[in-house]
Design a protein around this nucleic acid. Structure first.
Lengths: 299, 299
DNA sequence: CCCTTTCCATAACCTGGCGGCATGGATGTG
DNA sequence: CACATCCATGCCGCCAGGTTATGGAAAGGG
């Protein structure tokens, strides 16, 4: 008996939401499509999985049995997928490196060059991650190493080598009154609206709002973005200000956006991270070494 | 990332066969269809799974990684499916009973009637199994109990209650010289061609050929069938003879086929079986009790 | 040396399935 | 009584997958 895992994911979503309508918008499909997916799964199994009512979709007994076993199954499949992809990149001698836009900087080309020198035949594949993923794909097993910023959620489950520390500046609309100043104190920004990362990034979002360095005062959110472009636009359009690493002033310079040093807020730290499973992986270790030397050696 | 399990089964088949052509005929699809399925899976994963050559399809390293993990995954899914179906039948108060055509007999209606009396609200669903499955779906978890014949392969993994013993007779073309006799000895049949069950039924096939009661002499196979209809036709058409339980003479009477008692061959035994997991299942126990009483009580 | 066989890939065609939109029916709610 | 909320259904357009027919490459046999 064959199924598409999409049907199973849909089933799980409906089971969790208890509603076709809500599950449909969570899955970005129309509600009729979900209706048919659920029905199809039921026909396929020959089992009624839900009892329909005006109040929503309630699991039947066999539905509960299925809902208990399907999520681990899907997790297993996802793991299998990652493993196969990992094997493929190893076989092709490709090192997959994820990076946050803000964590790669001037030294990146040098790192790659040095790594390529040490590992001839190997190729580095750089993958820029969305801000909604502070581990740049490392936590999901999509990459072998990641250039990212500390701290990030789930940091304990990964190996981390800190590379450098960088003061946090503020990016603000160039027309903003505070932009006239050469330097600001963080306290002056407490009541400004901020452009923030999406809520599901948790500690990452809080870190760039410096939520715990505001003496307990609430944060005003002016806009939510998860890509550099949107982030710059939101600031330029005056929706709010945002903390950013000093290097952003060089990499994300843009008319309408001004960067100023901020005192009274802890600096940001750039690090390279890898999975504990790769502790014995000489290629990953080489890459990490290259990162370390790029910030210590040449200086 | 979503996949249809059909793609995974196809992948496993190709990996095992090492050839698209052979895998295609095993899966009952055309070879171009399989070509596209494999290609689709590779595109989906973004990974080359096979290296093609005139000599066939050889797994790549990531292909081997996948081939290692997918079969357990599919087995897990099949198990989940069985579990859900089992839960459904329990919730609907349906007892699923598999039976071999030759193992159900005159007492079956009485068994069902008695069970229904003891378990009002419950319904018995009788499912006839193909001869290729000597456990009548019990080993696969498709049924809760099974009426079958002993011995069968994998018998040790199931609970069995023997119900009755029945002599084995022989079914032969009515025009066959030996059909003129009232009774035969098995030894007289040693050189006759036999109509046999498919090879993949293993011990089951051997049992009905009485392969180990021939004093080491080889068996001549006249035809292979896995359904009663084909079996009767094969005998009537003179392709061979076959051993059968005495009751077959009543249930499978047919012009052109004669049944005669055979001496010198051990009798067949009918039993009811269930899964060890259902040892504590009162409903299954009731059904087994009904079976036992049907053959002991009334007599 | 050529012919045949055995692989896999490709092209052309056709059907069925799936998704989206619009709408309907049932049922609580202000 | 109108409205909001949910799920089901009808219709339409499109893509995906299957089949048949065919091609090309390579190995084995006469």
């Amino acid at each position: 008996m064959d199924v598409d895992t999409r049907l199973l994911r849909s089933f799980v979503a409906v089971a969790e939401e208890g509603s076709l309508t809500r599950a449909a918008e969570r899955l970005f499909v129309s509600q009729p499509a979900l209706t048919r997916q659920v029905r199809q799964l039921e026909t396929l199994l020959g089992v009624a999985l839900f009892t329909r009512s005006r109040t929503g979709m309630a699991l039947t007994e066999p539905g509960r049995a299925l809902a208990r076993r399907v999520p681990p199954l899907l997790a297993d499949w996802d793991g299998t997928l990652r493993e196969a992809r990992g094997a493929a990149s190893r076989a092709e001698r490709v090192l997959r490196v994820g990076f946050l836009a803000s964590a790669a900087n001037e030294s990146t080309p040098g790192i790659i060059a040095e790594f390529t020198r040490r590992r001839p035949g190997w190729r580095v594949e750089m993958r820029q991650a969305a801000w909604s993923d502070p581990t740049a794909g490392l936590a999901e097993g999509d990459v072998d190493a990641a250039l990212l910023r500390l701290p990030f959620p789930g940091q304990g489950a990964l190996r981390v080598a800190e590379l450098l520390e960088e003061p946090r500046w503020v990016a603000l609309p160039s027309g903003h009154p505070l932009a006239a100043r050469e330097e600001l104190s963080f306290q002056e920004l407490w009541d400004e609206p901020f452009v923030a990362a999406p809520p599901d990034t948790g500690p990452w979002r809080d870190y760039w709002l410096a939520a715990d360095e505001r003496g307990g005062r609430p944060v005003r959110i002016g806009a939510v973005t998860d890509r550099p472009d949107d982030w710059l636009s939101a600031i330029a359009n005056g929706y709010g200000v945002a903390l950013a690493p000093e290097s952003a002033a060089r990499f994300y310079a843009r008319p309408g956006v001004a960067y100023r040093p901020v005192s009274g807020v802890s600096p940001s730290r750039v690090a390279v991270a890898w999975a504990p499973a790769d502790d014995g992986n000489a290629v990953v270790r080489d890459f990490v070494d290259c990162c370390r030397e790029a910030v210590t050696g040449p200086r």
